[in-house]
Write a protein that binds this DNA or RNA. Structure first.
Lengths: 248, 248
DNA sequence: CGGTCTGTTGAAGGATTTCAACACTCGTGG
DNA sequence: CCACGAGTGTTGAAATCCTTCAACAGACCG
């Protein structure tokens, strides 16, 4: 009765490979706070970063570690999670190339979350100290950083609102739409979320249990809104999912 | 059987009065992003602000309004709430003198939440445009603003974690401790939270219903952890509340 | 002192978690 | 190349937490 399907995920997106200098520059230019820089300036900034590679499911840093580095995703996906004492996890964000992570607060020098790779990744790292001198050097960067941070703040506010006012089904519908917009790629099976994504990942994003997430996903599949298999999801009817997430 | 008590809240803290220039300067100096400025600079910054007064339960701005002003609380308390379509409210933050509110994002020019007075208040306002020129003029401000914003981000992350992993009782215990630290004043009845605080306010902070909040508060009172009446709460045993919020 | 707002409490119903058993996928090594 | 095992997903049933509806009680305001 249950019929799951083998993965349609693109291997190139998941597997590790070297970050070419070209790719580095391109992704650095995508980071909003470097967007205003000229090409020579960008090259100088690029030289302040060094590249690092991780394989899937590695922890880049742990919550409460001393925060010395700022990082930018170049290739692959990184998830930020909060861990509780009892081992429960809350998935705060899933980052794609061009997004930064780390801690920008000058006073608190520990990471407030754990960063773990969702695929093989290539990231750029810079010491906080060096980043701060970039901030001094290019004042446009500080303002852009502030902007990015304010937006993250807003998206967390929205997340809190959904956690406290919406039932699980609507929360998951919303999460699927958001992931579709961010990681979606056209594919014969639908809008494929180009990312290994387990029921537990979804549950940790929605603030529910893996079993409940599975039940909701089964229902969505029943209603032909999505197609899903082990560690992957494709969206068939985004408008209807969006309606589910906000109706009533 | 039920015995509620009349309010021990201090009238001075709740009622409106003019903001003296002295008070303005003192509170502006308390805002972290102006902390590094010299006194003459502070006076100049002060001149860019103008004062405004509101009575209790007035809305300063609505979610999605065009965001033109940045504001600083000088006297009284302001709450930031998210409203859902069905009229539910989520209380995101309760601000005290020295804290700023508004929207710092340059790209999104609407408020992401509603600001409402919790007491009579005096606030300082500055046009975003003018604030941005302050940012350009004093680079230390931009970095300090970034710092404050990063910290708010972290506290929202913590809130999300609690909403998704803790039961209501622990969430409320934690909220009481936090409010006690922020608004607590020594008082014969215990550590009095100097703020009109209804069960609904607490419920909106904890992401639960007013009835459930009331039940939890009744139990805490039964256990002599708090003393509470209509619109006020005093904490008798902070260590035990803290233990409840994190035990198991 | 009466009306209104806020808080309390009970009881029923609903959403979600937890525990448990089983099914399917995929990689690995025989 | 197939079989096995570990990891992941599904589903059922019981238990739990919480919401909702409802009625009433205490506090504050004029």
């Amino acid at each position: 009765m249950v019929s799951r399907k083998s993965t349609p995920l693109d291997d190139f997106s998941l597997k590790n490979h070297r970050c070419s200098v070209d790719l580095r520059l391109k992704k650095l230019g995508m980071v909003p706070f470097f967007a205003d820089l000229s090409e020579p300036e960008l090259i100088e900034v690029n030289n302040a970063f060094s590249a690092a590679h991780y394989t899937v499911d590695q922890t880049i840093y742990y919550q409460d570690d001393s925060a010395t580095m700022l990082r930018v995703v170049v290739h692959g996906a990184v998830k930020l999670v909060h861990q509780t004492l009892e081992g429960k996890e809350v998935l705060l964000d899933m980052l794609k190339p061009g997004e930064y992570f780390g801690n920008l607060s000058a006073l608190d020098d520990t990471y407030s979350e754990t960063a773990r790779t969702q695929t093989d990744v290539c990231i750029l790292t810079i010491r906080m100290r060096d980043f701060r001198s970039l901030l001094d050097q290019y004042s446009s960067i500080a303002i852009a950083v502030l902007d990015v941070t304010s937006r993250r703040l807003q998206s967390l506010q929205q997340k809190i609102q959904q956690l406290t006012t919406l039932p699980v089904k609507k929360r998951i519908a919303h999460i699927l739409v958001t992931l579709g917009n961010k990681f979606g790629e056209k594919h014969p099976r639908g809008l494929l979320i180009q990312l290994p994504l387990s029921r537990k990942d979804l549950a940790d994003m929605a603030g529910t249990s893996a079993e409940t997430a599975s039940r909701v996903m089964s229902q969505f599949q029943e209603d032909d809104l999505i197609t899903s298999g082990r560690q992957w999801v494709a969206i068939n009817d985004k408008p209807k999912l969006l309606r589910i997430s906000s109706e009533d």
